[in-house]
Every structure is written in structure tokens, then in C-alpha cells.
Design a binder for these strands. Sequence first.
RNA 1: GGGUAAUUAGCUCAGUUGGUUAGAGCGCCGCAUUCACAUUGCGGAGGUCACUGGUUCAAGUCCAGUAUUGCCCACCA
Length: 715
Amino acid sequence: MPDLAKAYIAKDHEKEIYNLWLKHNAFKPKVDSREAFSILMPPPNANESLHVGHALGITVEDLMIRYARLKGKKTLWIPGTDHAGFETQVVYEKKLQKEGKSRFDFSPDDLRKNIREYVDAQREKIISQIKLLGASCDWDSLYFTLDSNIVETVYQTYYRLNQDKLLYRAKKLVNYCIKHDTSFSDLEVVYEDREGTLTEIKYPLSGQKNKFITVATTRPETMLGDAAVAVNPNDERYTNLIGKMVNLPLTDRRIPIVADRAVDPDFGTGAVKVTPAHSHIDYEISSRHDLPIIEIIDRHGKMIGPIPDEIKNKKIIEAREWVVNQLEKQKLINKKTAINHRVAVCYKCGTPIEPLMVEQWWIKTKPLAKRAIEAIKTGQITITPKESSDHLITWLENIIDWNISRQTVWGIPIPAWFKNGEIHIGQTAPDDSGDWQQDKDTFDTWFSSGQLPFAALGYPNDSKYKTFFPTGVMETARDILFFWVGRMIMLSLYRTDQVPFKHIYLHGLVLDPYGKKMSKSKGNTVNPLEVMEKSGTDALRWGLVHGTSAGQNFNMTEDRSIGGRNLANKIWNAARYILLISKDYRKNQVLDLPLQDLMKTMDNAENKAVLRDLSKTINEVEKCLDEDQFALATDYLFDFFWHRFCDQYLELSKKLISDQKLEAETRIVLIRTMRDLLTMFHPIMPFITESLWQHFYQTGWVENPLLITSHWPTK
RNA sequence: GGGUAAUUAGCUCAGUUGGUUAGAGCGCCGCAUUCACAUUGCGGAGGUCACUGGUUCAAGUCCAGUAUUGCCCACCA
């Protein structure tokens, strides 16, 4: 047996151990009659570098899959990377910007090709970083979300939605970012408190001199697209004006005053201008009163439509100044007040969202959501933490139709063709007349990633799909519960009639030591690669799990991983000591007896007692791991190992072992307890435990050459 | 506005069907060093379990309310 170094230096072992696992195909599922357990790895964006959020997710997933493997299940963990359509395009545009270029310098085809090359070059990086974390996933199953089989499945879903009349193309009001030139779904819009000006404008009543109705707005320029003025039906100030007309200033149009329940009489003047083409609430009001929709802003934020020539094609902000000036000249501005209000903005660049009328592909989500709700309510899918079930159900119950088209080049092209208002759905044009134009849009990334559980497993014919679907658990970040998890459930039930996973485990946010969100701009990020380099991967993994709570955010401090490093060193030295004093001990079959039986062979009460406590610990750890209580499991393990085994028993064993009558059984207790501890520590600290297992194996104390494919302790 | 979670030692947090004297890690104080490990050991200080009320023989734990903080959803024209 080679001598063990006095201290455990993680760097000296990790690479070798990972290669050992790879060499033995330890991550590959052995397909037999055992119970199946699979996890789909949430694919990190192909252009990203590993951050601490990934590290947490991968640690927990690896922990679950290693535990299942030790418990004798056939396991498959499928890794992948995400093309992440819009997000990647934004990153690439930033890169272009640094080079003094923009996306408009390239044709869409060239741009797509360039991003593809960029992503292909980046992809290897994050994959190698995932390997550093010790991820025991089946690399032969590695997927990329633009793989042809996945794209094909996505297309089939699109066709089927069309056949089932759940897909439609419509020009409706959508959330549009004029900077990125794409629409979004409701989920990609965030709200921010912004300073603004509330301008009160007097609209002259038709046929009545010097009589006005005053509206309040933060967007004066949109008055040019007004279709009505609305007041609350119960607002006595305006009851006599309902049904009357006003002359819309700066235009020659006359618009009605309507009564609508959406108007809050206590806000502003209690009268509101209605601009159906550029406000969601106004769009709703207009549909209730059959008002015309007048578009005055285009996709680039330029003024269009029936507006004065002076501002045609001008930017929104210029138009605003012009409109306010003109109104002031006509003495139609009542007053202007500063206001702090919530503004819908693009979640990437903070540009205010412009609601615009754009033709998009929509999915009718209500019928899909209904089945998802049922699956959750009947317990076909369970969630940790449990309160997330209600969040998900509430979201599904209030779901609105989903805009699945994006005006980005990087993504899965939508298989649809247009010719003079005709629409053809399919990958190729219906004829080669050359009149058909392919849809230039791409799918919302979440539409394709929402199908990954079955798409990445090779639905419908692949043996992986047949063996491992539905997957056992979906482990992912809490903040994509609606974006991703909800959509996976809906689309999976729709396509496969099965839930995509039986259980969901949501991890919280990793915060900085002071409980603040980590962000690159704040400079308060913890770089997992640095922690791994400094303290070791096992130490990082321990630090991410120990002392945290399922689904709750937690503060990441360096101390957490230092604690993990110290623990690794302690494990190393306990095992090293046992190896040193017993290196000539040859295995006795008694060693493998179930603990209950092994205990009966012991003469000494202390030896019996430590085995009894070991058995208790196995029970506790098992129960915790079965219930997603990973941190609590590490608590039990830590306490038994450090205090009960090392501090008490190991010291005591030094006396016992010098007693000739007790020597043999004491060695057995030491070896057996350490062996079972290595096994239980393995899911959370795979490298050091496997490394020591190798020494146990070479000494002849264990049968299985690899801990990773060994089995959970027998009680 | 609606929802949800958190509030326990200086700090970060456990405490799972209510049950002796409320725990851990880190930090702090004292002692110990050829004996697996100083990335260590032994010992110690430190808590009105946010607050108010209720249920109970018994409440950190269950119920109601209050406060503070975080997050999610809706959204202000």
C-alpha cells in the first residue's frame, strides 16, 4: 500500500479519480430490471462560464444521482447545453459592440453562422467545468438544444399544436423591446420604479366652446393614437359626459367618451386617454367598446401613422417634446407633476417595453395548463419546497396565451411560410414558385427547452426514452419555475401523455456573505472555480449543501468551503490512521455482515455501541436523503463522523486494540465504520471518498473496485 | 393590492408528527503539541427562540394577530 500524505490535497487526486470513473464507464447506466432513476441536467447557456448557481445545481443533482446509484437503481443523468436564443444573441451583440461592429453589419444568415461558430467554440468550456465539479453524468448522452433530433421534436409539437387548433397567428398587442427588436412573452417583462412626468391634457368637448375633459398621462405623444377617453361609470363628475365626443387636439379626429370599469377615479383626473395600439389596458378597454386601433409607433420606436408631418419617423422622445410644445401653445396643458411609477422594461437592457401590434405565433395555453394543474393536484408531480406547488398552480390557473415567436436570428427557425396573406406550415415551401417567404422569426427558447425532458431522451423511439421517461426529478433554480418547469409539464403532458418528471427540487439563490444578490457589476460573486482550486471540489460541494435549507436562499461564505476542506482532511486522516495501524489485517468475512449481525459478534460494549450508532446514522441519513433534506443529512453525518467516531471511538480504540482479546474485533469495527462512512459521504464528497476507497480496495478490505458503483451500507 | 417564506448565540443556520437542562459551524476566551489530523484536541463564555394573545399537563414547535425583512404574482394610466 502506498503511503498516504499527511494532509489531503484535493488537486492531487481529483483529475485522476474522475478519469478512473470515466475509464470504468461508471456514469453509464447498466440497463437491466432494476428501478430506473434519471435526471435531465438543466442545460447551462453554451456561452456561459460556470457560476456558483450552476455549481449548486450540479452538486445537488450529482448528490441525488450518486445516492440513487448506490441504492442500486439504474441511473441516467443527461447533460446538455442550451443555445439560449435571445440571451446568446445579446451576449454576441455585446461582443460585436466591443469590436466596433453591430448585428446590422451582417446578413441574418451570416450572423447566424457567426454565432454558431462562437457558441461551438464556447461550449467545451462549460462542459469541462462541469466535469471539474465531479458530475457523474453520461457524457455519451450529451445534448445541445439545436441538435437535429431535438429541433425535429420541436417542429412536430408545433405541427401538432396547429392540427389541434391550439396554435394561431394573430396581430395582437405584444411586449416589444425596440432596442433588441423583438417581442417577448409576459414573463420576460420586468417592472421598475422610474421617475416620470404626469401631464394633464385638456381635450375640448365637441360642439361646446371652452369646455374640456382633462386626462392625465405619462405618455403625451401617444395621444395621437387615442381612440377614446374613458371614465369610471360610477364617477359622478363625468356621468353627464359619457357618450359625448371630444375633438382630439393636433388631429382632425373626434373620439368618444366611454365608461369603463378599468378606470380608477382616484388616479390623476379620473379621466384617461385610450390608446389601444400602445397600452395593454387600453387595448382591453377598446375591445369592450369596439374602438379602432390606431398604430403610431413602429418596431424601431419611430412615429408613424395618421400624425402631423413634423414628427413623422421621429423618435418617441422627440415626438413627446413636440406634442407637449404644441399643446402648450394651444393652452391645452393643465399641469405637469413629477410621478414615481412602475414601468415595464426589457429584462435584459432596461429599455421601456413598447406594447405594439405585431403579428406573432400564439399558443392557447388554457387547455395545456388544465392537465398540468391536474397532474400537480393529484400528486403525480411533487415539489420541494412544497409551497411551490401552490405558486405553480396559481400561475397555471391564470395563464394567458403564449407568444412563442421572437424576432431574433439565433434560435430555431419557425417552420412556416407566407405568400400574400396565405400561411403554410411546414419545413419547406408548398411549391417552388419562389413566391413563398419563410418566416424570419425563431421560437422562444422556452418553447423548445420546455420539451427537453422527452426531446433529449429521444422521444418517441429511443431506448433511453422508453427506459428513463418520465425522469425521476427535475432539479433547477427556483426563479425559472414558470419560465421552464411549468412549460415542461404542459408540453410533456401534451406530447407524451406523461408527466416529464415525478418530482421537482428547487434550489434557492446563492447570495453573497451579506445576503445580497451576487452580480458581476457589484463584484461580490464567489467564483466556484477559484474555490475548487483553493480548497478542493469536495470542499466546495460541502459548502454549498451543508447548513442550507431546501429551496431557501443562502449566503455563500468562504468559511463554508473551509469547513468542507477541514472535513475532507479529517476524513483523510481518520482513514489514513486506520490504514496505517491495520495494513497487515486481512479481510475476515465477518466484515460484510449486516450491522445487526456484526454487532452480535462483538464482545466489547464500546464496539457494540459504535456500531449501533453507525446503524442509527445510516437510518437518519437515508431518511433525510429520501426526503430532500440534504443539509440535515450532512449534519447527521458530520456529527457522527467527527464527534462520535473520531473524537470518542477512535481515541478509545487505541486502548482496545492493545488488548489482545479485543484487537481483531476492534479492527473490524474501525474498518467497517470507516467504509460505511466513506459510502455515505460519497454523494456529497465523491473525490476524497473514492480516493480512499482505492486504498481500501488495494488493501483487500472491499470487494468493489469502485465506490461510485458500490452499494449503500447494509444495516 | 394578492401570495409566500423567514425572524433561535456576535455571525451563518439546524431543531421533521408538541415531551428532561434549546444545538452545530464559524468567531471569541483558557489549556494542550513528538502519540491519524493544528485544516487538531479538551474545556469555557454567550440565547426572554421577533412581539402579543390562545390551545395544552407540557409550546422554539400548534392556532390567531402584530411588526420587520426577503422573494413571487398583478400593476398605476
